[in-house]
Amino acid sequence: MGVHKVKRVVNILHMYPDLLNLYGDKGNIECLKKRLEWRGIEVNVKSCTFQDNSIDLDNTDIVFLGGGSDREQKIVCEALLKQKQRLKEYVENSGVLLAVCGGYQLLGKYYQLEDEKIEGLSILDIYTEQGKKRLIGNIVLHNDEIGADIVGFENHGGRTYTGNYKNLGSVVKGYGNTGKSGFEGVVYKNVFATYLHGPLLPKNPKLCDHILKRVLEKKYPDNSSLAPLDDETEIKANEYMKEIILSK
């Protein structure tokens, strides 16, 4: 008889998919979900929508905050400001949060637009300023901790200044946080925030598993192993894009 293991369950909270849905965020949610399910871990994906506005962080293991248009981002921000304290506690308590694009900007102190300042959640001590041109294109990062190159697509008007935080990666090709700093994203405790939008995780299985590992270590410290998966297509996708991006 093998060691009897308790059934593991992971609850994902997708924040405002009705508002923040600009860049195929479904790709990230599906990737988190499937890579758990394929390992026999039960997954519940719940949505907090603009209408129900129900945020149950006590029973949440991963929070996902996506990107939206400026208008939609403002609506979300107003709703989320009321939950600011609880989200902050969740983060300080090592809750896992993946924030993409607009969601990344929202975590900071503010987003200074040309004619208006959108107040952020101040969960991270970072801020964003609108730049002259949008930074758009394929991007390659290197992340030492997971020992992998991360490929993705960025499209942002904001320049995000991240102070002394650890970054998601150093920019090998592309723009990153400000277009100049040479770094992309922020990693703080179990918060992963990035401008790489949409289907970031499917082509970066190592990053996805790194995040999932953090989830399991927090929830099941004695039972946090992740069985290996057949990632042939994912790795091919990653290397193929890297080759194309770096050859330009």
């Binding site: 195929g24 499209n155 289907p199």
Partner: peptide, 9 residues
């Protein structure tokens, strides 16, 4: 369009 994120939509 260079961005294929929409495949997930």
């Amino acid at each position: 369009g260079r961005d294929v994120s929409w495949l997930w939509d």
